[in-house]
């Protein structure tokens, strides 16, 4: 029992991290109509930008989060303006190839600049809190912060999508592109904002991953499959579905270690995704298939 609750806690932490990535993937798919394969490496780059910022100014590790998010949002918009915008006029599937190439380019750039060794935000071991319920649960303070900040970011995205004019324009474009364009929604500005939010949240996921474990160049790539699984499970193109999808995938991945070797955690995410694609391809929350 104790072990199950402990894994549930780890699952919620992983789920929070995956949610951050999956919201971005889902929004990009909803508005630009392509699966963004560089999203995992956006996570990596965001984490490293944060690392560069805190080591340059000697700040506490938590400064990696805002600096990484701002930096990555800027890089995402830059990549869109320099590359994706030129390709966008052709078929969306060409964007898919381009983003797959971009994934490798970003990873190579990270290796080139920061090297391929493991790095971490803070030296030393953090002592977990021990709770004496259910025979001694261990909770790391970092995990609590990750879940709380992720929740705050989700609330912020929700408020942005429902209360601001830009957020409403985004949802309109995601729901019905033609109708939205006819009503005069500024498509290019909506797309720019999509990259700002997608890139920023990807960086948050990357920084959380880095705080939870370590930073290494393929950290985001290995998280890409669970992120996609979360986005598909929630219904691709549905940011709110991504939250549910992220939690389900995160908890399932951690729980699976009870019965199968931990090396197969990504396979669990994949299996859930395949079942979903067969049974209900539109996702839990009817996505824009």
């Amino acid at each position: 029992m104790n072990e199950i609750v402990q894994l549930l806690i780890y699952g919620v932490v992983l789920g929070s991290i995956l949610t951050m990535g999956a919201i971005g993937v889902s929004m990009i798919f909803g508005i630009l109509r392509f699966a963004h394969f560089a999203h995992g490496d956006f996570m990596t780059l965001g984490a490293y930008i944060g690392l560069a910022f805190i080591s340059a100014f000697g700040l506490s590790p938590w400064w990696a989060l805002p600096s990484g998010m701002i930096g990555m949002a800027a890089v995402a918009v830059l990549i869109d303006k320099v590359l994706y915008q030129r390709i966008r006029r052709t078929q969306p599937v060409i964007l898919l190839i381009s983003s797959f190439g971009m994934a490798l380019v970003i990873r190579a750039a990270v290796q080139l600049i920061w090297g391929s060794d493991n790095q971490s935000y803070a030296k030393g071991i953090q002592f977990p809190w021990r709770l004496d319920i259910l025979g001694g649960l261990r909770i790391k303070p970092d995990h609590v912060w990750i879940v709380l900040i992720a929740f705050a970011l989700v609330v912020a995205v929700h408020l942005f999508l429902t209360r601001t004019k830009m957020g409403k324009a985004m949802r309109a474009m995601s729901d019905n592109m033609d109708l939205a364009l006819i009503t005069g929604i500024p498509a290019e500005r909506v797309i720019t904002w999509t990259w700002v939010i997608g890139g920023g949240l990807a960086a948050a996921a990357g920084v959380f991953l880095g705080i939870d474990t370590r930073l290494y160049p393929v950290m985001g790539w290995t998280a890409l499959l669970p992120v996609f699984a979360a986005a598909i499970l929630g219904g691709i193109g549905r940011p709110y579905g991504a939250i549910a999808g992220g939690m389900v995938i995160g908890i399932a991945m951690e729980m699976s270690t009870l019965v199968i070797p931990a090396a197969y955690k990504p396979a669990v995410a994949f299996a859930i995704m395949v079942v979903m694609l067969v049974v209900r391809p539109q996702g839990l929350f009817k996505g824009t298939l």
């Binding site: 798919f29 392509f34 699966a35 394969f37 599937v93 898919l96 890409l224 499959l225 996609f228 699984a229 598909i232 691709i236 197969y264 990504p266 396979a267 994949f270 995704m273 395949v274 694609l277 391809p281 298939l289």
Partner: peptide, 15 residues
């Protein structure tokens, strides 16, 4: 649609 095939194939290759 083809995006799902892309995601499924990258998953199977990793697994």
């Amino acid at each position: 649609r083809t995006d799902y095939l892309a995601i499924a194939t990258i998953g199977i290759a990793e697994i």
